[in-house]
Design a protein around this nucleic acid. Structure first.
Length: 575
RNA sequence: GCCUCCGUAGCUCAGUGGAUAGAGCAACGGUUUCCUAAACCGCAGGUCGUAGGUUCGAUUCCUACCGGGGGCGCCA
C-alpha cells in the first residue's frame, strides 16, 4: 500500500468509527489545497445532526496522524486538509522502490479469460481491429501484473458461410497460387475475388453452397483446404501482432470452429431447460426485457431456419467452455460497442440456463470507434478501410523521419529500433489514453507530438533520465536503496506522484480502463519535467543532494518503464 | 418508435458526490553561455448540451428533453 492517501484513510477509519459509533468512510481524497483532504466529516455531521467542523474536530482528536502528517487543518465547512510529513514520504518511497512491484498492492489471484482482437480468416486486419487488440492486450498485461491467471482467447472468425466461396476460389486458383497470394498478405484481394464470383456467377454460388455443407459435414478434403486458408491467415496475423508488439500467439487462437462440437450441446441444454422455441422456422430463445422494432419479444437465434448455427450459439458455447472447462472467475469481452445488446442477451440466456453462476463475472469491455478528421469511421482517402499493417508501417516511418530530423547523431540501427518503439507506442498510446467507451479521432500529428498526453512525451521523459545516468558515474542500479531528501517543492511533488502509481494501476485494472494509467503517467512525466527544470541532478550543490536526486530519477524511470510496459509500450533509452 | 453510449475552453481530451472544473494544441507575451529547445514560464479562454429533481454539497446520481453515434430476427 504505497499510496499515502490509503494509509491515512486506514489511520482515520477507527477515529471515524469511534465518533460515528459504527463503520464510517473517512473519504480521503487527493486535494489541490493540500496533499489530501478528508471529506467524511460532512456526511457524518449530517447523520449526527451536528456542525461539521465540530465533528471534524472530534475525529481529529481521536486520530493520531503524527507519524504521517506534518500538519492537519480543519478548513471551510468541515474539510480536513492534510499535509504529509516529508520523512514519511521519503520512507514510503524507499519502501516502494525496494519492492519489485514498485509499491503496487497485490490482489487475490483469480482466473480470467480475456477475449480480444478477433480478426477474420482470409480477411485483412484493419483499423477496426486496433482497439480490441491494443486495449485487450493492456488489460491482459495489467491482470498478469497482479498475478491473476489469464487465458487469452483470440476468437478469430474461421467458420461460417463465407468459407464455401473461399474454398471454391482456392480450388479455382490452384493451391500453390492461392498460397502465394495469401502469403503476400493480400488477403483482401483474395476475399474480394471470391465475393465477386459469388455475386456474379450462379454456378459458383451453388458450388460454394455445397462446399459449406461439406465443410460442416466434416469432409476430409474440404477440411484440408480450409486448414490451408486458416494457416496462411494465422501466419499473417502473427506478423501484424509481432509488429504491434502484443502478447497474442498461435496458441491463443480459439476460433469459432473450436466451439463446433459444443454447439449441439448448447441446443440440447436449452431444449432441456424448456427455453427453446420454434419461431419462423428457426429455433430461438426469447429473452426477457428485449424487444424488437415493433415492440415484440426479441429472440436470440440459436439455430437458423436452414438448420445452421450462428454466432449467438457459438458465443453461448464459449460461456460453457470458459466456466466449466477453464473454470474462470471472470470473462472479459473486449468487443466493440455495436455488439452490446447481443452480448447482453448472451449473458442473460447463459444466466437463465444456469451455465453462468452469479459468482462468475461476464464483462463487456466496450470501446468506441476510431474516427477520421471528418468524425466518421476512419477510412483511407479512396474510401476503403484502413489496413492495419499499412497503418503501423506509416507510424514507424513517421517516427523515423522525426527522429532523423531531431537527433541525427543516432546510428541507423538504433534509429530504426527507436522508430519502431516510438511509432508503435504512439499509435497504441493514442488508443489507450482516451476513455475507451468514447470514439476518438485519429490524428498523426497529435499522437506523434512530444507535447501533451502522448507516448513520445512519456518515452522522452524516460530517455532523458537514461541520458542523465549515461553522463554520470553511476549506474541505475547503484543508486537504488538510497534515501531521498525532500527539500525542494518539485522533489516533493515528484515523490508524492511516484507513490500514487499504486492507485493508478489498481484503478486502471479494476475499471478495465488503461487510460487511467495513461493519465497518471502523463502527470508523472509532467512532475518530472518540473523537477528536471528546477533541480539540477549532475550539477547538484553537494554529493548527498546528487545521490538523492539520482535516486529520484531512477525511481521515476522505473515507474515510467513499468507503467508503459503494462500498456504494452516500450521505453527506449535514447531517442 | 424502443434500447444504448456520448455531449466539459476555438480544437483534442482529463476530471474519485466535495471548496475556486484541469491539461495539451492553437492564440497572445516571454525565457536559452544550463544534465537532449524533442524544453520551460506567463496570459487568456467555461451557462460542464437544456430544464427539473435527490443531496449539507451535483460536471459526477435520477427523470425529461435537445443534439450526435450505435443497435433493434435468421451476417459475425
Amino acid at each position: 500500500m504505497a499510496d499515502p492517501v490509503l494509509t491515512v484513510a486506514e489511520l482515520l477509519r477507527p477515529a471515524f468509527a469511534a465518533v460515528a459509533g459504527g463503520e464510517c468512510d473517512p473519504t480521503v481524497r487527493p486535494s489541490d489545497r493540500a496533499d489530501a483532504q478528508v471529506n467524511g466529516s460532512l456526511a457524518l455531521a449530517k447523520k449526527m445532526g451536528k456542525p461539521p467542523r465540530e465533528v471534524a474536530e472530534a475525529v481529529m482528536a481521536q486520530a493520531n496522524l503524527s507519524a504521517v502528517c506534518s500538519t492537519t487543518e480543519i478548513a471551510g465547512p468541515g474539510f480536513v486538509n492534510l499535509t504529509f510529513a516529508n520523512e514519511f514520504l521519503a520512507g514510503e518511497l524507499r519502501a516502494a522502490m525496494a519492492d519489485p512491484r514498485l509499491g503496487v498492492r497485490t490482489q487475490a489471484a483469480k482466473r480470467f479469460v480475456v477475449d480480444y482482437s478477433a480478426p477474420n480468416v482470409a480477411k485483412e486486419m484493419h483499423v477496426g481491429h486496433l482497439r480490441s487488440t491494443v486495449i485487450g492486450d493492456a488489460i491482459v498485461r495489467m491482470l498478469e501484473f497482479f498475478g491473476h491467471h489469464v487465458v487469452r482467447e483470440n476468437h478469430v472468425g474461421d467458420w461460417g458461410t463465407p468459407f464455401g466461396m473461399l474454398i471454391e476460389h482456392l480450388i479455382d486458383l490452384g493451391e500453390a497460387e492461392a498460397s502465394r497470394e495469401l502469403s503476400v498478405g493480400d488477403l483482401d484481394m483474395f476475399y474480394k475475388q471470391a465475393r465477386q464470383k459469388f455475386d456474379a456467377d450462379d454456378t459458383f454460388k451453388e458450388r460454394a453452397r455445397k462446399r459449406v455443407v461439406a465443410l460442416q459435414g466434416g469432409d476430409t478434403e474440404t477440411l484440408r483446404m480450409w486448414k490451408l486458408l486458416v494457416a496462411e491467415s494465422t501466419r499473417y496475423f502473427d506478423r501484424v501482432y509481432d509488429l504491434l508488439g502484443v502478447l497474442l500467439r498461435d496458441s491463443d487462437i480459439m476460433g469459432e470452429s473450436a466451439y463446433n462440437q459444443l454447439l449441439p450441446e448448447v441446443v440440447e441444454r436449452l431444449s432441456k431447460a424448456n427455453m427453446l422455441v420454434t419461431s419462423d422456422g428457426a429455433e430461438v430463445v426469447f429473452v426477457d426485457g428485449f424487444v424488437n422494432r415493433d415492440n415484440e419479444p426479441l429472440p436470440l437465434i440459436i439455430r437458423k431456419g436452414d438448420g445452421g448455427y450462428n454466432y449467438a450459439t457459438s458465443d453461448l458455447a464459449t460461456v460453457i467452455d470458459r466456466v466449466e472447462r477453464l473454470k474462470v472467475d471472470s470473462m472479459l469481452y473486449v468487443v466493440g460497442a455495436p455488439q452490446a445488446q447481443h452480448l447482453e442477451m448472451v449473458a442473460a440466456v447463459a444466466r437463465k440456463a444456469g451455465w453462468l453462476p452469479d459468482t462468475v463475472e461476464f464483462n463487456h469491455v466496450v470501446f468506441g470507434s476510431v474516427l477520421g478528421e471528418d468524425r466518421k469511421i476512419l477510412k483511407s482517402r479512396s474510401g476503403e478501410t484502413v489496413k492495419l499493417d499499412a497503418l503501423l508501417a506509416e507510424a514507424v516511418e513517421r517516427a523515423e523521419a522525426a527522429i532523423s530530423e531531431k537527433n541525427p547523431e543516432l546510428d541507423v540501427a538504433t534509429r530504426k529500433a527507436v522508430a519502431r518503439q516510438v511509432g508503435i507506442g504512439a499509435i497504441k498510446y493514442a488508443d489507450l489514453s482516451i476513455d475507451r467507451v468514447k470514439d476518438y479521432i485519429f490524428d498523426w500529428e497529435r499522437m506523434l507530438s512530444f507535447d501533451g498526453n502522448t507516448a513520445p512525451y512519456l518515452q522522452y521523459a524516460h530517455a532523458r533520465i537514461c541520458s542523465i545516468f549515461r553522463k554520470s558515474e553511476h549506474s541505475r542500479e547503484s543508486v537504488r536503496g538510497g534515501t531521498v531528501d525532500i527539500d525542494h517543492a518539485a522533489e516533493r511533488a515528484l515523490v508524492l506522484r511516484l507513490l500514487q502509481f499504486d492507485t493508478a494501476v489498481v484503478d486502471a485494472v479494476e475499471r478495465h480502463s488503461p487510460h487511467r494509467l495513461c493519465t497518471y503517467l502523463y502527470e508523472l512525466a509532467g512532475e518530472f519535467s518540473a523537477f528536471y527544470e528546477q533541480c539540477p541532478v549532475l550539477r547538484a550543490p553537494d554529493d548527498a543532494t546528487r545521490a538523492s536526486r539520482l535516486m529520484l530519477c531512477d525511481s521515476t524511470a522505473r515507474v515510467m518503464e513499468q507503467g508503459l510496459a503494462l500498456l504494452g509500450i516500450e521505453a527506449p533509452e535514447q531517442m
